[in-house]
């Protein structure tokens, strides 16, 4: 049952990305193109998601534990560091260049656009490089 709920969550997430237009890089880049072919749709995706997530999270956290697990795993950090800002800035440049972020890219894999086959392996390499360099830095 608990594995099924995770599968359901993944399926729901991917379906939401497709229905909303987030899985179409052209639509993402048009949202980011204020001075060109601007398409404001993505603001509605974020709005729709937050309208459900904000009250949903509030309700869920009235429980002391999740349904199938012994504790909530929520981020606890509140400090600002250079990694957060540099990481987010780097991510934004890549997102603008390709119109893909991790969820939509993976959801697009079965659609087999040739560009996706170049984006996803590079993204996985980028992630491993970041993990590897973080591991190296924490040792020194």
């Amino acid at each position: 049952m608990h594995l099924f709920s995770t599968l359901f969550a993944g399926l729901l997430f991917g379906t939401g990305l497709i229905l909303s237009g987030m899985a179409n890089p052209a639509k993402v880049q048009n949202f980011l193109d204020l001075f060109g072919t601007w398409d404001p749709s993505l603001a509605f995706v974020m709005g729709g998601a937050i309208m459900v997530t904000m009250p949903g999270f509030w309700l869920v956290q009235k429980r002391t534990t999740p349904l199938f697990h012994d504790a909530f795993h929520l981020p606890t950090r509140t400090d600002f560091d250079a990694k957060l800002v540099v990481g987010a800035a780097t991510f934004g440049i890549g997102w603008g260049l390709g119109g893909f972020c991790p969820g939509p890219a993976l959801t697009s894999l079965p659609l087999a656009a040739s560009g996706t086959f170049f984006f996803i392996p590079s993204m996985l390499v980028g992630m491993m490089l970041a993990k590897y360099s973080a591991a190296r830095l924490s040792k020194t």
């Binding site: 990481g87 890549g94 972020c101 991790p102 984006f119 996985l124 490089l129």
Partner: peptide
């Protein structure tokens, strides 16, 4: 783009 998205 993929490298920047993954790393960032």
């Amino acid at each position: 783009a993929g490298l920047l998205v993954g790393f960032g």
